[in-house]
């Protein structure tokens, strides 16, 4: 009889303990975040989306090479002599037009490996995670700030300059070769004269190589 009373007492005690806990939670604060209306502030270093500050990019390809999944696609054109692209905010001189800087966020695996090699800290992750799309191709983000006409123009100029430089180099090489040839001829002549002199002094011994070199 006593055990029954004891058991009954402990049963009710545990029930009321449990109900006390639940009623405390009933009046306690809720942890729910009403997501589309209120959003959690993500930490500064959270990896959600890549961003490129194209004004600071020097076109060094280090990020593209670091990427394990090849999601960064860069194309550059060297700046021609008549334009000065200025310097980045870190003081590095910019020498290339960035005709293409595409990042395919569908491929990106958020490894952060592209961020650290960047010499000017212009590629980094931003805490923006709401960019789902219906079409996968919409996930390719273009960071180049050149319009297609500019790209064509810049490429043409760069090619023209490259052509020009090539031509100049070839001319220079030709001139060099010419000079070298002349010098050689001169030296050969001198040699001939000297050997002729020597031949007269020593007789017929060195006459054979002299004939070869002369022709």
């Amino acid at each position: 009889m006593l055990t029954v009373v004891k058991q009954g007492w402990s049963t009710f005690k545990s029930i009321f303990t449990g109900m006390g806990i639940t009623i405390r939670h009933f009046f306690g604060p809720s942890v729910t975040l009403q997501y589309p209306d209120e959003k959690m502030e993500l930490p500064e270093n959270s990896r959600a989306k890549l961003y490129v500050n194209i004004d600071d990019c020097i076109g060094c390809f280090l990020c593209a090479r670091a990427c394990p999944v090849n999601c960064i696609d860069i194309e550059t054109a060297p700046a021609t002599a008549d334009v000065d692209l200025g310097k980045t905010s870190t003081g590095n001189p910019k020498r290339f037009w960035l005709t293409r800087f595409d990042i395919d966020m569908a491929k990106c695996m958020y490894c952060d490996l592209c961020v650290h090699p960047c010499p000017t800290n212009c590629i980094y992750m931003v805490p923006d995670y709401e960019y789902s799309e219906f079409d996968r191709s919409n996930l390719i983000y273009s960071f180049s700030n050149l319009v297609p006409e500019q790209v064509a123009d810049v490429k043409e100029k760069a090619e023209a300059e490259a052509e020009e430089k090539k031509r100049q180099r070839e001319e220079m090489q030709k001139a060099k070769a010419e000079a070298a040839r002349k010098k050689k001829e001169m030296e050969a002549k001198k040699e001939e004269e000297r050997s002729e002199k020597d031949g007269k002094e020593k007789g017929r011994a060195p006459s054979k190589p002299e004939n070869d070199g002369g022709e």
């Binding site: 639940t22 009623i23 939670h25 009933f26 009046f27 306690g28 604060p29 809720s30 942890v31 729910t32 009403q34």
Partner: peptide
């Protein structure tokens, strides 16, 4: 709502 509040949620909102 009671279920939500007891489980520290908000329930239908």
């Amino acid at each position: 709502k009671v279920a939500g509040f007891i489980q520290d949620r908000l329930g239908p909102m």
